[in-house]
Design a protein around this nucleic acid. Structure first.
Lengths: 108, 108
DNA sequence: TTACAATATTGCAATTTTACGATTGATTGG
DNA sequence: CCAATCAATCGTAAAATTGCAATATTGTAA
């Protein structure tokens, strides 16, 4: 079919998967690293740094914004993007819990 | 186009994105949670627990296996799946570093 | 060997993702 | 107001993802 059957999973499973999907692209990882490094970044800068078209970068920024990971502030002609600390910390915590839930035991 | 331009990103960015993509589906989150909870899990069990077809579960297991996150051991007729500790710990560490790289500062 | 059970694989349709050119919208400078 | 600049959106094409029925494969038991 091609559409995820979200209705059979828990709210938490869907939420975590959605956030991970937002991160699951090298361009979006690169964008986040750049934003973190520069502590705020404008779209044009990203277009210069990464080798992608402006429309493509804008689309990736939109996905990160939709997921709530970044926020954009209009500053005249440009838009300043930065990390949304609350969402960042929450995802960090959720992932930390998820990864810690596995403890190595004797297995098959 | 529809294909990720991996060649313009670093090895690290691509690797992290690939691993995140493997996790970025509620069914695969659910499968991992179940494997962790049961400390090993057979495919049939997962088909019963989650509400997906056997072929679909098998496909998700294959993706997790391809990413190196789980490993499957054939035990007669059944296959026992469990977490691959090395890959798990490595991803945990990489994500931890990634998330810690952001420190809240005054921004726009 | 034959039958059965558990998984894997194949083939297909619907949907989503990725990428980009072209265009539009918004803001500033002259 | 008009031109220039930056970013968002639209439209489109190619490719990847999701899901499942049908089938194949593999190992066990009779």
């Amino acid at each position: 079919m091609g559409l995820t059957r979200s209705e059979i999973f828990t709210e938490e499973q869907n939420r975590l998967a959605t956030m991970l999907k937002a991160l699951a692209h090298p361009a979006r990882i690169a964008i986040l690293q750049q934003i973190i490094k520069a502590n705020a970044c404008i779209c044009g800068q990203l277009v210069d740094e990464l080798g992608l078209a402006q429309a493509t970068i804008s689309q990736h920024l939109k996905e990160l914004k939709n997921a709530g990971i970044i926020q954009g502030t209009i500053e005249g002609v440009t838009v300043c993007y930065c990390i949304e600390p609350k969402a960042w910390k929450l995802l960090q915590k959720d992932l930390s819990i998820f990864f810690k839930s596995f403890d190595v035991k004797n297995c098959c």
